[in-house]
Write a protein that binds this DNA or RNA. Structure first.
Lengths: 190, 190
DNA sequence: CGTGGTATTGACGGGAATCAACCAGAGTGG
DNA sequence: CCACTCTGGTTGATTCCCGTCAATACCACG
């Protein structure tokens, strides 16, 4: 790939695949995120658009010149990459150590929090957000099968941890409780 | 942590831990690798020295000034961070999708290849290397328990995929065969 | 109406975690 | 020297979570 670029609008997914087809998502590309590696020619991720997407592409050589000339750009890029590394590592903890239920709860908490940042919090301590993503994408993301994803969501629904409303809205009556189900985040203790 | 720095000599491990003690290694710090985040104050990894280690530390503010002044340093740092991100993502594939046996085989292949870079290849197609690491560290790294690690290594030994010699040397008679056991790497197909 | 994609649910089996016993080597101190 | 402990490793028995296989439902769409 002689091109690099960044996402202007839309969402794409980054995934890795084994020879027999087993698939693991390893990243999300949101607007402003970067695609392709300056300094390497081969980057063997599967990049799949999740929505309509518009990119801003550069020839690699051009971009590298740009990078040399503008140190601000380099710092910004470093910062974004460090963010992605942090996210990837926390995801390693999820993939390596969390149960299926905890993984689902973790994902829901993340999506709820992202939405909370956007705006509406209907009830204090609660949250609600749309779940546009398919079960398959969730499974690829969480290192599970779609059946397990479906079952765990059903279980959380039966237990009242979440409610599934029309057009894919999810309501979380008690976010703290769901955080407990998620196994918590990184241990802040020494 | 008001300090950042880099490893001069020795090896350290980066790990994340859940509140109940479940632990996942998320990175290795080898000589020249970087520690601590420029731009953030909190970094909640457990950093544990795996050997005697010597670091070269800077005050954060000082280092950030250095970073602004020398664009070469920033580029180098970006490059290293992108490498680490790539490693982390391939590890996500292992943690999310590979079986215990495949994880063990993958780790052994990686260590064999690293050693091959260093020097000796006794038999063509084979390899051998020292395994200084404990089962616990392997388990933390691979997202398994020590019992499972031990069992899978025993199984590979029984099947002749590997031989365990004195002072922790591992011999791999047929590296290609072990690669097959590892589930292969990332699928190069589109 | 049929068809394909997405989701749910059940039955079943297997793989890894858990619980537990045991062994080897290295200190440690009487 | 020997008893004791501690750490790291191996192995067995059992449990249970999740993957696999399968059937069914739902919905959009031609």
């Amino acid at each position: 790939m002689p091109l690099v670029g960044s996402v202007v609008e839309g969402v794409a997914t980054l995934a890795l695949t084994l020879a027999d087809g087993r698939r693991q998502m390893v990243g999300l590309l949101l607007p402003a995120d970067f695609l392709g590696r300056p300094g390497r020619t081969r980057s063997s991720y599967d990049v799949v658009a999740a929505t309509e997407i518009t990119l801003c592409m550069f020839r690699r050589a051009e971009f590298e010149r740009l990078l040399r000339d503008s140190p601000r750009l380099g710092q910004r890029l470093l910062d974004m990459t460090l963010d992605e590394l942090e996210v990837a590592r926390e995801w390693m903890l999820l993939l390596g150590r969390k149960t299926a239920r905890e993984r689902i709860a973790s994902l829901l908490v993340i999506m709820a929090r992202r939405q909370a940042g956007v705006g509406d919090d209907p009830t204090p301590g609660g949250a609600s957000f749309p779940l546009h993503i398919t079960r398959e994408a969730m499974a690829d993301y969480l290192g599970l099968t779609i059946e397990t994803v479906s079952r765990q969501i059903s279980a959380l629904r039966r237990e009242g941890q979440i409610r599934l409303c029309e057009n894919r809205m999810v309501e979380v009556p008690n976010l703290d409780s769901l955080v407990v189900e998620s196994g918590g985040g990184v241990d802040p203790a020494v």
